[in-house]
Computed example of a mutant assay.
Amino acid sequence: MAPDREGNGVRVLDVMRGSPAAEAGLRAGDVITQVDETEISEPRDLIGAIVQRQPGEQVRVVAMREDQQRTFNARLVSRQEALNNARAEADRRQQEMRRQQEERDRQGDRERQADRDRQEERERQADRQRQQERERQEARERQQDRERQQERERQERERQQERERQQERERQQERERQEDN
C-alpha cells in the first residue's frame, strides 16, 4: 500500500490471491478511503483501523476505483493466517513461475528441434539436388559417350566405304590394264 498521489486515501499496490482483500474484491490500483467509520488518508490510518479489530471480524472498506466509490466487506485474519496465506501465495507464484519457465524451456526445446529439423530437411534437399545434378551429369556423359561412339562408328563406316571404293578403283584399273594388254 502507498499514499494516494492526490492524498485521498491509500492506494492498493498488490492483492494476493486468497487474501481477505482479494476475497472482498479489492484490486491493485483501488484507493481505500474508509474502513468502517474511520477515514483513511495515509497508510498508518489503515493499519490503525485494522489492528483495533479481531481476526474473524467483518469490516466495511470504502475505496475508489476508476473515479467510482465502491464498498467491500472483508473478513480480517490473524497475522499468522496472513503470513500463511502470503507464504502459500508466494509458493503458488513460485510454482507458477517454475511452470512458466519449464514451458518456456519446452518451447525453446521445440523451437530448437524445429530448427534442427528444418536444417536437416535443407541438408536432405541439398543432398537430393546434388544427387540429381550428379545423375544429370552422368546422363550427359553417357549421352556424350554414345555420340562419340556413334561418331567413331560413322567414321569407321566412311573409312570402310572409302576402302571399298579404293578397291573398286583398283579393280577397275586392273581390268583396264588387262584390256589394254
Rank of each mutant, 00 (worst) to 15 (best):
M1Q: 11
M1V: 06
P3D: 10
D4P: 06
E6A: 10
N8F: 10
G9A: 00
V10I: 02
D14T: 13
V15F: 02
A21C: 03
A22D: 15
G25M: 03
G25D: 03
A28Q: 08
D30H: 04
V31T: 02
Q34G: 05
D36K: 00
E39F: 07
I40K: 01
S41R: 15
E42M: 08
R44Y: 13
L46C: 01
I47P: 07
I47F: 11
A49Q: 00
A49C: 09
A49R: 00
V51M: 02
Q54N: 09
R60G: 09
V62K: 11
M64K: 05
R65V: 03
R65A: 04
Q68P: 01
Q69H: 08
Q69A: 14
R70Y: 11
F72S: 00
F72V: 03
N73L: 13
N73S: 13
R75I: 13
S78M: 01
Q80F: 11
E81T: 04
A82N: 15
A82M: 04
L83I: 07
A88D: 15
A88Q: 14
E89Q: 11
A90D: 10
A90S: 08
R93G: 03
Q94V: 14
E96Q: 14
E96C: 01
R98M: 12
R98D: 08
E102N: 12
R104Q: 15
R104S: 04
R106S: 07
R106M: 15
Q107Y: 03
G108T: 07
D109Y: 04
D109G: 10
D109H: 13
R110F: 02
R112V: 02
Q113M: 11
Q113R: 15
D115M: 12
D117Y: 02
Q119M: 07
E123R: 15
A126G: 09
D127R: 15
R130P: 01
R130S: 10
Q132D: 10
E133Q: 10
E133T: 01
R136V: 00
R136I: 01
E138S: 07
R140P: 07
E141N: 09
R142Y: 05
Q144H: 06
D145A: 14
E147I: 01
E147S: 08
R148H: 05
E151W: 13
R152G: 01
E153D: 14
R154T: 12
R154F: 08
R154E: 13
E156H: 12
R157T: 06
Q160K: 03
E162M: 03
R163Q: 12
E164K: 02
Q166T: 07
Q167T: 06
Q167F: 04
E168V: 02
E168K: 04
R169V: 08
E170Y: 13
E170S: 10
R171H: 03
E176W: 00
E179P: 02
N181V: 11
